[in-house]
Design a binder for these strands. Structure first.
Lengths: 231, 231
DNA sequence: ACCTGAACACCGTTCAAGT
DNA sequence: ACCTGAACACCGTTCAAGT
C-alpha cells in the first residue's frame, strides 16, 4: 500500500453516505457540467472506488434523482426566507418572488434544468415546492380547479427556468450573427427583419439556453396577469 | 462469406446517405425510444457496420441534430397545408392552429421533446418554423419588439410541447395515487386538497410528461390572450 | 469513393472476495 | 456492514486496411 493510497483513505475517514454522494455530484456538475458526473469520477471525489457507491445509491439514475432533490431543497430553503403577504391581490407578487427566487438558485447551477427535464419520477422536494406555490394561490382566492390548470400552465417556469429552442443571434459572448441564419436569410424574412430591429445581444444570457432575465420575467408576467384576470 | 451476409449486402444495395441515416434514427426512436438509437443499432438497421456511418455524419451529436431537423421538417410540411387568414384579429386562431398542428406531430414522436431540449445548435427547419409563426404575428399587427418577447415567452410551447415537472397523480394508465405523495400527505396539504377535488386521471396523458391536450391548450390560450391584449 | 475489422478509451454495473 | 479488484457488456470513435 503506497503512501498516496494511505493518505487518501485517511482523508476519507468520514464514511460514505447517500448525502455525501449527492453533494459530491452537485459539486462535480457545478465544476464540469453534468456529463462530468460519472460513477468513477464521483468515487474519486469521495476518495473511494466506484463500486462502493452502490452501497448507498441503487444506480446512477437514483443519483440524478437525488441531485434534483438536492437542488430543489436549496430552492425551498431560499423561498422559505421570503415573508410576503399572500391574501387576495397580494398573491401575484408573492408567487412572482417565489419563482424568481427559484430562478436565482437555478442560475447557480446552469446544468440543472436539463437534469430536471430528464427526470420522470416524483421528487419530494419538488412536491413541497409546488405545495407552497399552491398555498399562495389558494390564499389569493383561486379555486382548486384553476390552481390545477395554473400548475400545468407554469410547467418548468414555476421552478425558474424555461426551455428556449433556439438562440436568435450569436452565442452569448460573441456579437457575431449566426452563420446558419446568414446563409438562410432569404428564406427567413421575418426573423431577419425582427433581429435587424431588436438588438439581441445579451451579455447575461445563461442557463444553457438563451433565457435572460428580462425575457423570463416577460413570459412569467404574461402568465401571472392572465391567471389574475381569471381569479 | 456466409449466405446471410451476402443476403444482407444485397438488401442494402441502396448506398448509405445522411438522409437514410436520419430516417433510420427516427424509425428506431419511434420503435424503442431515443436510448435505442446507438451507432451500432443504426448501422444494423441499414445493413451496414457502425463505422460506415461516419462517412455520412460527423458523429452521434450530428445524428441527433439531424433528427431534430427531420421532425421539424415533418411539422413544417403539416403546417404548410394550413391556409387560414392571418390579418388583424385572425392572427390568434392562425397561430393557435399552427402550434396545435406542431403538437400533433410531436405526439407521434413522444421521445422528440427530450431530444429537442438537449440540442443547442440551430436547426434550419426550426428557424423556418419560427419564421412562419413570426409572419402570422406580424400580419396580426405586432411590433418586432413584441414578437421577440413572444417567441421567448412561448419557448418550447411554440413547437407543441411543454415541460411538466411532476405528474400530480399516478401514471397515465393506473388510477393509483402516487405512493410518494401518500407518504407525504401531511406535509402537502394544498396538493392533497387540490387533487381530492380535481380528478386528475387522464387516459390520454402522453408525451413523456403528463401534458394532456386540455392543459396544453389552457396554457397556450393564456399566452395567446395575453399577447393579443398587448397587440 | 466508400466501406469495414480490430482496437481504444471510456461507460454503468455484477460478482466474488476481502476487512 | 462496508468496501474493493477484476471482469462484463455495452458505448462512441480512431485507424489502418481493404474494395
Amino acid at each position: 500500500m503506497s503512501l498516496a493510497t494511505r493518505g487518501k483513505s485517511a482523508e476519507s475517514r468520514t464514511p460514505l453516505s447517500r448525502d455525501r454522494v449527492l453533494r459530491a455530484a452537485v459539486k462535480i456538475a457545478d465544476e464540469g457540467g453534468i456529463a462530468a458526473v460519472t460513477m468513477r469520477r464521483l468515487a474519486e471525489e469521495l476518495g473511494a472506488e466506484a463500486m462502493s457507491l452502490y452501497h448507498h445509491v441503487a444506480n446512477k439514475d437514483q443519483v440524478l434523482d437525488g441531485v434534483v432533490d438536492a437542488i430543489t431543497a436549496e430552492i425551498n430553503q431560499a423561498v422559505g426566507r421570503l415573508a410576503l403577504p399572500t391574501r387576495g391581490a397580494a398573491w401575484k407578487e408573492a408567487a412572482r418572488q417565489r419563482i424568481l427566487t427559484a430562478r436565482q438558485v437555478m442560475l447557480r447551477h446552469p446544468w440543472a434544468p436539463a437534469v430536471f427535464a430528464s427526470r420522470t419520477t416524483t421528487s419530494t422536494e419538488v412536491l413541497l415546492y409546488y405545495d407552497g406555490l399552491l398555498g399562495i394561490m389558494r390564499d389569493g382566492g383561486f379555486s382548486n380547479d384553476l390552481c390545477h390548470h395554473a400548475m400545468h400552465a407554469f410547467g418548468s417556469r414555476a421552478l425558474g427556468f424555461s426551455q428556449e429552442l433556439f438562440t436568435p443571434s450569436g452565442g452569448p459572448s460573441t456579437g457575431e450573427p449566426d452563420p446558419v441564419m446568414v446563409a438562410m436569410a432569404a428564406r427567413l424574412p421575418h426573423l431577419v427583419g425582427m433581429l435587424a430591429e431588436v438588438v439581441h445581444d445579451d451579455p447575461d444570457a445563461t442557463l444553457g439556453w438563451c433565457d435572460d432575465q428580462a425575457e423570463f420575467e416577460f413570459g412569467l408576467d404574461l402568465l401571472l396577469d392572465g391567471l389574475d384576470r381569471r381569479r
